[in-house]
């Protein structure tokens, strides 16, 4: 069901932050793995691929959200692909004109942005159900999260594999023979991706636990929060007083009364 209810500022901007960290497309949702492994041989490739995908994601999310009541459900996937393909081609045209080296370097994977599962997944699961602004925020969040992950992987692989960062070569490292070519090759891509996924998820889980603990201790310290005989806070449950209240509450939640 289309959620067209008014949102407060926090709800509007929530997809932005969750897309970057909590729902990071690469490390948490494990989407778009093919371009992730293929183009992260250097940091600049990862960054540019991430930004190109962000642009397509933001624009396609906005258009899909705008047209969500106009597109018939039966043909929604071809319609979304049409929108995504338009912006993907647009990015290709722009990069070919003004960034030809990067265009050559990204090669086929720039054209394959159109079938990147992140784009279709966000169009289907978010933009087609939400208003324009939250959809754009979701596009920016997920896109920046993807760009961040690709850049990070590219930096690690380029540094370990070629002794360089963003094309700047550390001559001393290269002359000492320290770069390990395997990190630029596909096997190294899988290795770095796997390790980064473990580290990222451990960090995010630790942060989430710390936030939950802080919230819990805040509740324990607050004298206004009712507690049971063991001193644990009693969860606050608001129950409608009458049957009519319950129907109203259900309607507000978007259910059938």
């Amino acid at each position: 069901m289309v959620k067209d209810r008014t949102r407060n500022l926090r709800e509007t901007f929530e997809p932005l932050t969750s897309g970057v960290f909590k729902n990071n497309a690469t490390f948490r949702l494990v989407l778009g793995t093919c371009p992730t492994l293929a183009v992260t041989t250097s940091a600049i490739n990862g960054l540019s691929m991430g930004l190109a995908t962000t642009f397509v994601l933001v624009c396609s999310n906005a258009i899909v959200s705008m047209l969500r009541n106009f597109i018939p459900r039966k043909v929604r996937i071809p319609a979304y692909i049409l929108v995504i393909a338009t912006f993907s081609t647009l990015v290709q045209m722009i990069m070919r004109k003004w960034l030809p080296d990067l265009y050559d370097s990204l090669g086929l994977f720039l054209s394959l942005v159109v079938v990147n599962c992140i784009l279709l997944a966000r169009a289907e699961s978010f933009a087609s159900l939400n208003p324009v602004i939250p959809s754009v925020m979701d596009g920016i969040g997920i896109g920046l999260g993807f760009a961040f992950s690709l850049t990070l992987l590219g930096m690690i692989r380029e540094f370990l594999g070629a002794g360089a960062l963003f094309g700047y070569e550390f001559t001393a490292l290269v002359e000492a023979g320290l770069p390990m070519t395997i990190f630029v090759l596909p096997a190294g891509g899988f290795l770095v991706y796997g390790f980064m996924m473990v580290i990222y998820n451990a960090v995010v889980k630790a942060v989430e636990n710390a936030i939950a603990k802080r919230a819990e201790s805040r509740n324990n310290d607050n004298p206004d929060v009712p507690k049971d005989k063991n001193g644990d806070p009693i969860p606050l449950i608001l129950e409608p007083e009458t049957g009519e209240d319950a129907i109203e509450a259900l309607k507000r939640e978007g259910g059938d009364a």
């Binding site: 047209l67 106009f70 597109i71 018939p72 039966k74 043909v75 071809p78 319609a79 049409l82 929108v83 393909a85 338009t86 081609t89 647009l90 045209m93 722009i94 070919r96 004109k97 003004w98 030809p100």
Partner: peptide, 29 residues
């Protein structure tokens, strides 16, 4: 419904083509 489907996809394709044609004018190599 069939008419709606054809019109919907047709309009999206038309707008997409126009947009790409305009961008192509400025980005032709």
């Amino acid at each position: 419904e069939s008419v709606r489907i054809v019109v919907c996809l047709g309009v999206i394709a038309l707008v997409a083509s126009l947009l790409l044609a305009v961008v192509n004018i400025f980005t032709q190599v």
